[in-house]
Write a protein that binds this DNA or RNA. Structure first.
Lengths: 236, 236, 236, 236
DNA sequence: AATGAATGAGCTTTCATTCAT
DNA sequence: GATGAATGAAAGCTCATTCAT
């Protein structure tokens, strides 16, 4: 934005047009990938829906895979952005994580098949860790990692909890949750799943005292009682 | 060798051969699907690796999708079987779940992409919930569901915990865990991940200063206070 | 039949078995060709329906085309036989031709697609005129040709009528007639078509006097009247 | 040449090229179908002979059947057109029918096997009567039907003659006639066959001693008898 | 003689990519 | 830059025919 002042007028217009075309193609591809899947979407489909010719797609993207990459970048960018904004607006780690879960499910449930591309493309790529898809994924999950580290710091999780493992648990759970909701066609049950996950991660208010907590507390109470008794007897 | 005996042996040999062929094709397909993915694996690939002609594959399987189904069935059957056996040999819910996690990761980590077929085929199939792939998946996850219900019953999780959500959290976490280990090429770090997951699910030994821990700490503080008071009074 | 006395018992049994197999294959092929057409009928189909193995078909027939030839031979043999018998039982050329038409349509309408094989195979064959299919066809049409020659002889058709052309008209008409009845699904309207054809070939009783006959008769009557008048005048 | 003029010409050139391609494919297919038959002609054959790539065929036609449809449409259109024109240029029903027969044989004799496609495709198509192939066939035969009705009206055929049956007789005869001429390799004997058919349909000049002829002869005999009687009486 | 598993050539169709205009 | 017709490799699948048993 800051260096845009240098390039104006005609150039600007051309860039806008170019960007418009590029965006149009990405938008069309995104919608089509989500509807029909990556494999069943053809370049012709994308071109038609973008209002350009088949060949034009190749002016903006190297090949079909490149289009997919751009779609993913677009999707992840928006996701990362809005996740970060939402997290910034909250203070407690628990609230942040709960928001993140709700936000993630809400965004992903409608764009389910786009994320399939990650696995579709992931294996074509030799050096996945060096790829841009990996970088996008990482940027997004980093937002969570930061929240997770903070939560650990603040005692919400054991000090020795690995943020990476927490991340895998978090996103893995959400992915399966989304999948289940999709299959059962209960896309509105996000809230239910989010609460269930939170209870597992943080323990429900009343729960867990059962198995562990209550036992400990009871034994502590008993110990104190015994000590009190002993002191009493001592007095006499 | 009598004539009928010869026939029997011949028949058996033929049947063995047939079974051998079928198994060889499934094994080849399994390995190829895992290496190249379902879409990029061709019938010719499978035939070549099985040491048969292309057409032979179609003697044993209706079409490519049918091969994939057989591969999945084979994989899930073994997985379900050994998981059930392992679970039966243990008694405490926690031990069972821990075993399940370790077992799942160990089995899946080398056959990662085979499970992708589920989602690949899932979309092709009209009535996924009625399909055999769904049934296989369900049979396996049912083993876990039973363990999970038992664990809830025994107070390891809050009484109102949904076993379905627990299942999604469990398998989702493991899937992401496996993926991470694969990418990082640290396939031997299964143990680390399993412990991490267990700690989140059940709380670590020292754990949870959060919700539960703080309550305990409060009661401890109160008890200590009372003891100090009593000692004070005693002194007088 | 006359030389069968020489070969008896075991040989006979074997031959019967062989003939039975051969007939079974032909019968199965005939029925299948008629239902599904030549191309869509597979050797496996034929083998299954005959109760033999695929390979066995090749013990009796050189290849698929050879099976088709046998089916055609079988069909034409029966057709020729019954046509000849029917014709022999009648005396007037007109009755014979009418019978032939009715018989042909009746036999062919249910075995419509078998005759398609003639054109399907006809072109594969280099020397059609020397082929056995041609011979079969010829044997059948010869029955008609003889009837036709007789009819011409007896004045039912102009003396210079070509029997060959008559044959083409006859069978061509019937083939189209059958086709139309099949398409319109009015397989019971054979009689109607036969009468129509007879009327064209022989002229209906009342008809044709119209255009030609009546005119001639009228002019003849007029001529006679004029002659009578002249004679009358002469007398006086 | 102005820019727009250039564009027009360019567009036209491209369209011409496109039409040329389409025509080239139809021409190639037509010729190949006629030589090898529909089934034995492959898309590759057609593409090679048209000078295009296999895939190009699919730019102009949906599939192989669609190519066949276009070939048939092309063939029938020309046939119908020229038949109608020829018929319109003549007045008497007999002349028209004779022309039609001659014209049909001349056109069909070189493109014999193309018409086979009708029956080849006829079976593939579920609703043949609603298909475009049926419509083409019908459009052509309608030209004849109109002529036939007119002929019946004018007394050339018995008033109760069915035009449909007449049509089947007409085209069926011609088809067999063509077939015979092809087999005998006497493609120049069309005239002979046409005259033969005309004589059957309308009766030859001298013809038909049969039904009609005999009646005439009877009346003639009677007239002569009467004249002889009169002369006898005169002598006295 | 009978079997039927195995073969593999051959077919139709799709679609990412190119390139002359 | 933009076009879109043309390309042709590549895939899934069928089935007549063979041949070891």
């Amino acid at each position: 934005m800051s260096n845009s002042a240098a390039q104006i007028s005609q150039t600007q217009t051309r860039r806008q047009k170019v960007e418009h075309r590029e965006e149009a193609i990405i938008a069309a591809a995104s919608s089509l990938f989500n509807d029909k899947g990556y494999r069943k979407t053809t370049i012709s489909d994308i071109a038609r829906q973008s209002g350009v010719a088949d060949g034009t797609v190749y002016l903006y993207f190297k090949n079909k895979e490149d289009v997919a990459r751009a779609v993913l970048a677009d999707f992840y960018d928006g996701l990362t952005q809005s996740a970060q904004n939402g997290v910034d607006a909250l203070s407690s780690p628990r609230e942040r994580i709960e928001f993140f879960a709700r936000h993630h499910m809400g965004e992903v449930i409608g764009n389910w098949r786009i994320l399939e591309i990650v696995s579709t493309l992931g294996h074509t790529i030799d050096n996945y860790e060096g790829s841009d898809i990996y970088a996008l994924n990482r940027a997004y999950s980093t937002v969570f990692i930061r929240v997770a580290k903070d939560a650990i710091q603040q005692g919400e999780f054991a000090k020795d909890t690995s943020p990476t493992i927490l991340r895998d648990i978090f996103f893995g759970s959400l992915e399966y949750g989304v999948r289940t909701l999709m299959i059962k066609r209960q896309q509105n049950d996000i809230e239910n799943f989010v609460q269930g996950l939170m209870n597992i991660l943080f323990g429900s208010g009343q729960a867990r005292n059962g198995a562990v907590g209550n036992q400990l507390a009871d034994r502590l109470d008993q110990a104190v009682s015994r000590m009190e008794q002993m002191l009493d007897e001592n007095e006499t």
